[in-house]
Amino acid sequence: MDASTEFAPPPGPLPGGGRNLHRFANPGRFLRLSGRVLPWVSAIALIATAIGLVWGLGFAPADWQQGDSSRIMYIHVPAAMLSYMGYGSLALCAVLSLVWRHPLADLAAAEIGPVGAAATALCLATGSLWGKPMWGAWWVWDARLTSVLVLFFLYLGQIALVRAFDDPQRGYRAGAILALVGAVDLPIIKYSVDWWNTLHQGSSITLTGAPTMYVGILYPLIPMTIGMVAGFIAITLARTRAAVMERRIRALLQARARTEAVGQEAAI
């Protein structure tokens, strides 16, 4: 692939908003934009997480039944949200890649996968550490836990598929298809506590109703969630920036090697 056309939109008409989307496929423009946004997002992540940690660990009251183990919630709940959000963004990247062939979507998906898998692993691990003192078991084959475990395996599958082919495009396509198919797990996770009789508690926070937990315990969750979401975005942006630059380096080195080979053939 020629270095100059590496991120060029595919030939032919693009459906819907494809043209606008491809404005952001320019690597220079993406690097400039993300370079401006990244310090701010990183600062928000650090400040909000620090506030949430001090508030949650130092000032929030312990739950009257669960004691201080409820403080694991300040890690567990944002990690759970990140695992859904990460997979949702993978599915979005898959649509952008399969429908509009947006090249940055492929790179972003490849970088979101490991971060999302780590968030899901964190959710499972902290859930287990919370479950042992409360339920008396590290793990139960409950619908919520099992569906999140399936999500973790979907992440692992996407990571493996993207890197499994010599031709990166085939890997991206296979990973995008798995990400789209796997998105069916997201509503299953969300409604698992309603559809089945689970050991895992139902939702404490809903969009339509009042929270079912004491607000003094709930409030520190807000900065922790903002901080961890911002941290996820910052890490993903930084990884995608690195991937864009690495791809550019590979393309330039390949172009240089081809030019040298042509020169040597001409000299012979």
Binding site: L57, R71, I72, I75, W130
Partner: peptide, 14 residues
């Protein structure tokens, strides 16, 4: 603080 043996590993992993 109760349950420190569970809280510390959770935050350490994070």
């Amino acid at each position: 603080m109760t349950h420190l043996t569970y809280i510390i590993p959770a935050y350490a992993i994070a």
